[in-house]
């Protein structure tokens, strides 16, 4: 079976800069879900952009469902961080979710089926009652859910979530985990997170990114290092490297 994500010998540097990612190799199989963790500036966002085909690798190859990222985009649902978007934009929750159904080309209007798809996605995330509310009036957690609904309306086989637990309140975070537990049964979910607690909950593999990349099975990660990780959570904030070396990864320099 074709793996969902296949990255081989990938290297990337921004123009006239030191390399951000070096010799990255990993594979995500169908049915697996993963979590990308690592320190700020370690290359998490760059890896995400490469997977989305927004950046081109300097060397190596990326395949999503056996094809280059630009050709398999229709199979990918992407959720950006909500605070990257204009909070005052005049648009309703339903209109945002509908964007997941958008078709390129001439006369791209939404059909009745598109509207049903978007509403069902909002329903699944428990926010169908907010459909006609203005996006600007929603809380952070609610906006995050609307953006996940938009990604789900694409009918993705791979869902990429960028920092889904950043800047939302703890109650909303709990709800989010529950949603994720349901979603990962249906599709591959890849989450970017700086929150290590997130790692052990709803993921099969942990992808540690700090210029180099190492991949760990979540159950091993938990068994061997749960104590260390939680014990060193403060360390994680202060010294990212300390944490990664304890997790046994080669991501540590």
């Amino acid at each position: 079976m074709t793996p969902v994500i296949e990255v081989g010998d990938l290297s990337f540097a921004y123009e006239s800069g030191s390399p951000i990612l070096e010799n990255v190799d990993f594979t995500i199989e169908e049915g697996q879900s993963g979590c990308i963790v690592g320190p700020n500036g370690g290359g998490k966002s760059t890896l995400l952009k490469l997977l989305l085909g927004l950046l081109q690798p300097d060397a190596g190859r990326i395949r999503l469902f056996g094809a280059p990222p630009r050709d398999s985009r229709r199979l990918v649902g992407y959720m950006p961080q909500y605070h990257q978007l204009d909070a005052a934009f005049p648009v309703t929750a339903l209109e945002v979710a509908l964007m997941g159904c958008i078709k390129p080309g001439f006369f791209p209007f939404y059909s009745r089926r598109d509207k049903e798809t978007a509403l069902a996605a909002l329903e699944e995330l428990g926010i169908a009652d907010l459909a006609s509310r203005s996006f600007a009036d929603l809380s952070g957690g609610q906006r995050q859910r609307v953006l996940i609904a938009r990604a789900l309306a694409c009918h993705p086989r791979l869902l990429l979530l960028d920092e889904p637990t950043a800047n939302i309140d703890p109650g909303a975070e709990e709800q989010f985990y529950a949603t994720l537990a349901v979603l990962r049964k249906r599709m591959t979910v890849l989450t970017v997170s700086h929150d290590l607690g997130f790692v052990n909950r709803e993921t099969d593999v942990i992808i540690c990114v700090n210029r180099k990349v190492s991949v760990h099975r979540a159950e091993n990660f938990t068994a061997e290092t749960a104590d260390a990780v939680y014990h060193h959570e403060m360390n994680f904030i202060k010294h990212d490297h300390a944490c990664f070396c304890k997790c046994g990864g080669s991501c540590h320099e």
């Binding site: 509908l98 964007m99 006369f107 694409c154």
Partner: peptide, 20 residues
Amino acid sequence: LFYPSVLAMSFDSTFAELRG
């Protein structure tokens, strides 16, 4: 003719680009 595309691009151009 292109209102949904214009709306999607104005709101989130990265997402619009990813959808083609």
